[in-house]
Design a protein around this nucleic acid. Structure first.
Length: 207
DNA sequence: CTTACGATTCCC
DNA sequence: GGAATCGTAAGG
């Protein structure tokens, strides 16, 4: 059996992961998200990508977390129910998070890198001609958002519903090792080891 | 209104 | 190593 002979998977037949399946703690949710598939419906096309790198932003004691300063218009969705998308803009780029923890507890999981599975030509087009190598399409939080067409229009999207953005289990999931490190690009709480990624995966932002 | 500031990316 | 670049949040 080779992969070339395998039938292509129809990801539209797979139900979104329900809210009950989301772990209650932010760190558990971060590890749980690894290997899951992110579905982005763009017009008639489904873009599919596998989550390979995440960071946890904790509801307490985490000065790097946006929610640390309290609830504002921007961070409102972090204080709501889990399983929604928290999206924010950083300079020219957007970053996507999965809201974790119960209502009023503002933890979240930043998606830092994904592995393109389906719709690669569209991702290439959205990223731009200057991007040559496939792993450079999605190996960073701003890059993957650009490749998947994710912006503030998807703020608060319910990832447990079959809409424009949701999460499913990988039907071809294989076992993997989880590696851990400090988070990237932050100045506050720099020593917390809250970055998790699939070991030896070529699509992570930094090995 | 004005200012400071990034959970980034890309180029030099 | 450094600039680009823009919404957010806080202060006057």
């Amino acid at each position: 059996m080779t992969d070339e002979n395998a039938e292509p998977v129809d990801y539209r037949n797979i139900e979104p992961l329900t809210r009950e399946l989301y772990p209650h703690s932010t760190i558990d949710a971060a590890k749980w998200a690894l290997g899951k598939l992110l579905i982005r419906r763009l017009g008639e096309e489904d873009l599919v990508a596998r989550i390979v790198e995440v960071e946890a932003y904790l509801p307490e004691y985490d000065e790097a977390a946006h929610a640390f300063a309290g609830e504002t218009n921007r961070t409102r969705v972090l204080f709501g129910e889990p399983g929604h998308a928290y999206i924010f803009q950083l300079r020219k780029y957007h970053c996507m998070n999965i809201v974790a923890e119960p209502e009023s507890v503002p933890g979240c999981v930043l998606i830092r890198a994904v592995e393109p599975i389906q719709g690669i030509e569209t991702m290439q087009m959205l990223r731009g001609e200057h991007v040559k190598k496939e792993h450079n399409l999605t190996n960073g939080p701003g890059k993957l958002s650009q490749a998947l067409g994710i912006d503030l229009g998807l703020y608060g999207a319910d990832l447990t519903q079959r809409g424009d953005l949701y999460l499913i289990d990988d039907p071809d999931a294989k076992p993997f090792e989880i590696a851990q490190s400090t988070r990237i690009g932050i100045t506050k709480s720099p020593d917390l080891e809250l970055r998790f990624f699939i070991a030896d995966n070529p699509f992570v932002s930094k090995p």
